[in-house]
Amino acid sequence: MKTIPWPTIGVVISWYSSNIGVLLLNKYLLSSYGFKYPVFLTMCHMMMCSLLSFIAISIMQVVPLQNIQSRRQFAKICFLSIVFCFSVVCGNISLNYIPVSFNQAIGATTPFFTAVFAYFMSSKREAWVTYYTLLPVVGGVIIATGGERSFHLFGFLICVSSTAARAFKSVLQSILLSSEGEKLNSMNLLLYMAPIAMLVLLPATLLMEKNVIGTTMDLAKNDIRIVWYLLFSSSLAYFVNLTNFLVTKHTSALTLQVLGNAKGAVAVVVSILVFKNPISVIGMMGYALTVTGVILYSETKKRYS
């Protein structure tokens, strides 16, 4: 039996911790703490991702710097940044209205949206049996929705939008940056996307969440913890991307997908324990069916592709 190296175990634990940590902290900030500014929160995340990406690549040289080769490539990255912004903002907004457990159940349908977008946007086609495995993915969420005691229609729709946008970005990225000269690893892509996303989010914040900076400063005078919460949440948002890259580097894209399915289940359990949100047996059965569908989809895709 092959022994798993300790660095790999450490990277996976870090990936789980940062993923689940940022989810729980964002939920706490936007719901329990009452910091009702998801767009500003996302902008803080992008600011920190910009800073830490620069430090990691340009100063610490964690990965080699990949330069942008043309204006056309830059335009493609800008477009990806807008889609990325939309996905993250919608995900954070949804945490205002629905529990983390339900958020994760909806998020597990990413393979369904990815398959749909890939089918219509590119010539890539999967075997029909692969598409059939998506039925339990969608069916599980439908069942979970019916059994969700904290269901909120707007929260549900905005979370579905976030999941669809995440899948759309993935497919779009594979199409737009497909040539060898334009391909960027995830760390370099984040280095360029984060500042663009920050510039997009700044006017959106000022328009949608007026006087948020003044309100946050006033809040910090009474409770300095809000500053540390925002800094910690923003740092975790970067480490989600860093550890995601490191897990792929130490294992494989397929292992990352399998670990991601398990991570979602762990996040559901942890969120229920932390926030004690009510969850029905039907809801758990629906989520279990979705995860089973995702696993079947991964296996059939590996076998028939």
Rank of each mutant, 00 (worst) to 15 (best):
G214V: 13
S170W: 10
E180W: 11
F168Q: 02
L176N: 01
S186L: 09
K210N: 15
N241K: 13
L172I: 05
N185V: 09
A144W: 00
E209I: 02
L177K: 04
V138D: 01
T163K: 03
L207C: 13
C159F: 00
S150G: 09
V212K: 02
Q173L: 12
L176V: 10
T243G: 07
I142E: 04
M208D: 05
L231G: 05
I226E: 03
V141N: 03
S161V: 05
V212H: 06
H152A: 11
S178R: 14
K169Q: 14
K169N: 13
V240E: 00
V160F: 04
S161C: 14
H152L: 09
L207D: 05
L201H: 00
P195A: 03
M198G: 05
N188W: 00
S150P: 06
M217Q: 12
S174A: 11
A164C: 13
A144S: 11
A237W: 00
L219C: 02
S179A: 07
F156L: 08
M198P: 01
R149L: 14
V137K: 00
A220C: 10
I226S: 05
G140H: 01
Y229G: 05
L191P: 03
Y238K: 00
V160Q: 07
A197K: 04
T163N: 06
S162N: 13
F239C: 06
V160N: 03
F151T: 01
A220P: 09
F156G: 03
T216P: 07
